[in-house]
Write a protein that binds this DNA or RNA. Structure first.
Length: 720
DNA sequence: TGCGAAGAGGTTTTT
DNA sequence: CCTCTTCGCA
């Protein structure tokens, strides 16, 4: 079996799998068989008796990846691996917090706040603090809190430095922290932070897990944030093996805290010599790989690697310059139709775009032609409003102090508890430092409320009380059925006369099915209800593409990561859209956009198509975008321009001046152009508004930063 | 409490 | 331009 195990690997893969170093970094290019390496690494460890499954912890980013990994390991080892810990950072952190809840000053039945719950809580707190949410946008507050947590800082650690803005943010953070503590709520970042604090503050606990997990494997390392990196380092200590797999060129989540620097740091911290590059690609043609290599070569900050394939050169990349976005959609769908007509599997064709809004036109065109398709990235099952309503009742059953759940369901469906009553309730809760639930209990016993409000509130509390009594000893499925019956949620949605009503009712029934049999398969460490709720928060349901549905695939470039298709269309490849304007305006974001493009290109197995439009309607305005710089970063010999027969199109490239001909420009200047200004020096044009001498031009100067200039006065000179 | 008008905002997403 | 949220009114 050993021979077999290694025989299917190439030399680099084998080197990684059998490495004896305590720190190994596998730089795994797209399509280079990284999951294979991870799976075989585990197989090797077990087979060579270097470790038992009990000694292994493998961490990934998505539940899907975790499930896949476990499945493939079991397949390889031909034995169950229940002893092995495989999961997401959050899943594992949650498991640890559950096991050690007493150490953390947490209620046993603490709940997980998802991002939406978190935002609602923040809005509530802003109201309480009487802060205008136009000046304190809840989403910015959430970003602030999450980024602080990711840096390992609690509210009390925020140093306001005489900055009133920071001071206020810190105050909001503190309120939020207290709110969560009081209600037994933990958000995603908190889960990681608490887990890290466990390693830090409980050496005996840490020692136990270090002793146990002699081998720690991490996938998609380029996506780790600072907390996750620290978590891995602390858990590993000096003695455990860290086997890390990632690709810095595919790091596309910097904006949500992922630190591509973690890879560099890991190398600097002594991985030298144990860095293994997987550069042989088993997915794409050499044309596609050549284009990807050339493109990513333009990035400065990378460890560096070059993909190659033993396979064929393949077809050139098809470049289509559309007249406008409608023409773009028409062209792509024509090609898709031709693909299908040739009998190729529709599911092997993907349309990839930078932003979700772009899908609309393609959808309309597909609907008009009656071609089935699937768009990824909608709401997931456990995120749907009706599901979260039902879960709200369950959360209150598990933990009545859960104010977040109380707020959600107290008057939903409507039962006559209006905003005035709630105002009184919240006020009283704050003064008594009690949960909303307990405050409600107290208030209904006094005369502080009008008769009507008191009645309504009493009805609600009785409902909860009865649910609790009746559901004791019931299975989870029965509990949910009771919740639905008692709350009358189904009747409420059924009476709604929107087109969504029917789907909502179905979803609620689906929730009951999801709970069916859950009690038996739940492990006995925790009660099934808590497990179900945690599951709902940590595993909100499918969103990523799945095999099986054989129709056209449409998704953002981000959600395409990890997938592959025979035929790929990258659309809207234009300056301002891809790279996105917002990324152009911020220092250092361009390289991530380029990595995103690299991800897009390397999704294609056989055929890659790139489209851009000369004119595009966006936000009710017509833009004339330049073709993306990414197109010109791909060597011309890989590209074939599409000329539709019979149409009089100008050639896109006259040699050298590739995009100069036939593309509308705003006067002498265009976005992305390098210019020189007498006073400000060298810079790049970010945006142009208006035309001629009166045009306002935004320039990002190397030395003085961003400035708006008037074309007629600025006297900008083109520079190299 | 529910509806329609008016307004804001519009990159990417997992846990 | 389109979609989602909020606000004011009946």
């Amino acid at each position: 079996m050993t021979i077999e195990l290694l025989a299917t690997l190439n030399p680099e893969q084998r080197q990684a799998v059998t490495s004896e170093a305590t720190r190994v970094l596998v730089l795994a290019g797209a399509g280079s068989g990284k999951t294979r390496v991870l799976v075989h690494r585990v197989g090797w460890l077990v087979e060579q008796h270097l470790a038992t499954p009990y000694n292994i912890l493998a961490v990934t980013f998505t539940n899907k990846a975790a499930g896949e990994m476990r499945g493939r390991i079991e397949e390889l080892l031909q034995q169950p691996t229940r002893q092995m810990w495989v999961g997401t950072f959050h899943g594992l952190a949650h498991r640890l917090r559950r096991a050690h809840w007493q150490d953390a000053n947490l209620p046993e039945h603490f709940q997980i706040l998802d991002s939406e719950d978190q935002l609602r809580a923040i809005k509530r707190i802003l109201k309480n603090m009487q802060l205008d949410d136009a000046r304190w946008p809840p989403k910015s507050v959430r970003n602030f809190i999450n980024s602080r947590k990711e840096a390992g800082h609690r509210a009390r650690h925020v140093d306001p430095q005489n900055d009133p803005f920071l001071a206020k943010m810190a105050a909001i953070y503190l309120e939020y922290e207290q709110y969560c503590q009081r209600s037994g709520l933990v958000d995603f970042a908190e889960l990681l932070l608490r887990s890290l604090e466990l390693w830090r503050d409980k050496p005996e606990v840490t020692a136990h897990y270090r002793q146990r997990f002699k081998h720690i494997l991490a996938d998609e390392f380029q996506d780790t944030n600072a907390l996750q990196y620290a978590w891995l380092q602390l858990l590993a200590g000096d003695s455990s093996h860290l086997f890390i797999v990632g690709d810095d060129d595919q790091s596309i989540y910097g904006w949500r805290g992922a630190r591509i620097e973690n890879m560099q740091e890991f190398v600097d911290a002594g991985t030298e010599g144990k860095l293994v590059r997987l550069e042989q690609n088993y997915r794409s043609t050499n044309t596609i790989l050549g284009a990807a290599n050339a493109l990513i070569e333009h990035n400065q900050e990378r460890l560096g690697k070059n993909l190659w394939s033993a396979g064929e050169r393949g077809d050139p990349i098809q470049l289509y310059r559309a007249f406008n976005e409608i023409d773009e959609a028409r062209y792509v769908i024509d090609q898709a139709q031709a693909w299908i007509d040739k009998g190729r599997p529709p599911g092997e064709l993907a349309i990839l775009y930078r932003s979700n809004a772009q899908s609309r036109l393609f959808e309309e065109t597909l609907v008009a032609r009656g071609i089935p398709y699937r768009v990824y990235g909608g709401q997931r099952f456990f995120e749907r409003a009706e599901i979260k309503d039902a879960l709200g009742y369950l959360r209150l059953l598990a933990n009545p102090a859960d104010d977040s759940a109380f707020e959600r369901v107290v008057n939903h469906p409507p039962r006559g508890i209006g905003s005035r009553t709630l105002e009184i309730l919240r006020d009283a809760a704050r003064h008594r430092d009690l949960s909303l639930h307990d405050t409600a209990l107290a208030l209904t016993a006094t005369a502080d409320l009008s008769g009507r409000a008191r009645n309504a509130l009493t009805t609600f509390l009785t409902l909860l009380e009865e649910l609790k009594e009746r559901s004791a000893g019931a299975t989870l499925e029965e509990k949910i059925e009771q919740v639905l019956r008692a709350s009358r949620l189904i009747e409420h949605f059924a009476a709604e006369r929107s087109d969504k009503a029917e789907a909502r009712v179905e979803n609620l029934q689906e929730l009951v099915s999801a709970a069916r049999g859950f009690d038996e398969q739940a492990d006995d460490e925790f009660d099934p209800l808590s497990q179900f709720l945690a599951n709902a928060a940590l595993e909100a349901g499918d969103n990523q593409a799945e095999a099986g549905e054989d129709c056209l695939q449409m998704m953002t470039l981000h959600s395409a990561k990890g997938l592959e298709f025979d035929q790929v269309f990258m659309v809207g490849v234009e300056e301002g859209l891809f790279p996105h304007q917002r990324s152009l305006e911020e220092q250092g974001r361009l390289e991530e956009e380029r990595r995103l493009c690299y991800v897009g290109i390397t999704r294609a197995r056989k055929h890659l198509n790139i489209c851009h439009a000369e004119s595009r309607r966006l936000y009710g305005e017509t833009f004339f975008p330049q073709p993306s710089r990414f197109i010109s970063e791909i060597p011309e010999n890989y590209i074939e321009e599409v000329r539709l027969g019979g149409q009089d199109q100008q050639p896109l490239f006259a040699p050298k001046t590739r995009f100069a001909a036939g593309i509308p420009q705003r006067g002498r200047y265009r976005n992305g152009q390098s210019i020189r200004h007498k006073k400000f020096g060298e810079g790049t044009i970010l945006a142009i508004e208006g035309e001629g001498d009166k045009a306002r031009i935004q320039v990002n100067f190397k030395n003085v930063g961003k400035k708006w200039l008037i074309a007629g006065f600025a006297n900008l000179e083109p520079s190299a």
